[in-house]
């Protein structure tokens, strides 16, 4: 059984399309990522799948329930963490968890095994108000609250936005463990480095899906030649690289990446020469390892 099936779902706000004919499927026990910038339509898709919004067109099922007809069943069976932070700031960690457990008709003890690993980190702060926790801690608590009723599908809308890299990494480690408990996860993020943690990713831009693939497949099928270049003056380097024909270049970490369009071939030496001619010094050039981010930038161009 599929955890989620979306078929051509569309949504408009005041005539402006927010989601346009989006289709995808999520397998049971899969971590499915929706990657895209703010305003791409991720939140609308989440809200349609969690029965909070009615789609204007298309249909969707969550755990074989229809999002329009069977909204009550879906609400009983899924966990949802909206993008806007969703805990009671003036209640303590423990009170929040207890409250959500009760709302979901369960108790902390009943599914403690699910959250145990996360909750032990929060336990020292259990009497602290949620509003006084750090970003990473809040995120963990919110995850506990969304998990406490052992949902069949977990919807996480940008759970790591604004959270520092360390907390983000820990958060993803937790998701991996949940996957082993056979909980299907649909997660959105604006961070490219998180894309590689998903089993499959849908890249979404302006309400439409650009591609759905495994991260490995995307990287393997990048297709373009990719170089990495370094020079002493980075600003000048990027300026000069813009003038290399049939390429796209962009800053990438300490290097700049040069992606050569399909159908063209280029030698590293040609680029080096071009840079030298423009007076750049300290040039280092080599083949770059393709990352998910390169793939997305290529999709966006």
């Amino acid at each position: 059984m599929k955890a989620v099936i979306a078929e051509n779902i569309s949504k408009q706000y005041n005539g402006k399309p927010a989601v346009e004919k989006v289709s995808f499927e999520v397998d049971e026990g899969e971590i499915f990522g929706l990657i895209g910038p703010d305003g791409a339509g991720k939140t609308s898709i989440f809200r349609i799948l969690t029965t909070l919004l009615l789609p204007d067109g298309g249909s969707a099922q969550v755990h074989h329930w229809d999002v329009v007809k069977d909204w009550r069943a879906i609400r009983n069976a899924v966990g949802y963490m909206p993008g806007k932070f969703s805990l009671y700031q003036d209640l303590t960690v423990e009170e929040n968890l207890h409250f959500f457990a009760t709302v979901f008709n369960t108790s902390i003890q009943e599914n403690y095994h699910l959250i145990e690993e996360i909750y032990v980190q929060l336990e020292p702060f259990k009497n602290r108000r949620a509003g006084k926790l750090s970003g990473g801690m809040k995120q963990k608590l919110a995850l506990c609250c969304a998990l406490i009723h052992k949902p069949k599908v977990l919807f996480l809308d940008e759970p790591t936005t604004g959270v520092d890299p360390v907390s983000r990494r820990e958060f993803w480690e937790m998701l991996k463990k949940l996957k082993q408990q056979n909980i299907s996860i649909v997660v959105s993020t604006p961070y490219m480095d998180e894309a590689s943690m998903c089993d499959r990713i849908a890249s979404i831009q302006s309400g439409s899906i650009l591609s759905i693939d495994t991260p490995q497949y995307l990287v393997k099928n990048y297709g373009n030649q990719l170089f990495k270049v370094k020079a002493n003056d980075r600003y000048r380097l990027l300026e000069v690289l813009k003038s290399v024909p049939s390429t796209k270049s962009y800053a990438f970490g300490e290097y700049a990446h040069i992606s050569v369009e399909k159908g063209h071939q280029m030698e590293a030496s040609e680029i080096r020469q071009h840079l030298h001619q423009n007076g750049l010094t300290g040039v280092e050039i080599g083949d770059a390892e393709v990352t998910i981010e390169d793939c997305f930038i290529n999709l966006l161009h």
């Binding site: 895209g36 910038p37 997305f296 930038i297």
Partner: peptide, 13 residues
């Protein structure tokens, strides 16, 4: 925060 990788790089330029 919250923009695609390409836009982010344009910002850095």
């Amino acid at each position: 925060g919250g923009v695609d990788p390409l836009t982010r790089r344009q910002f850095w330029e």
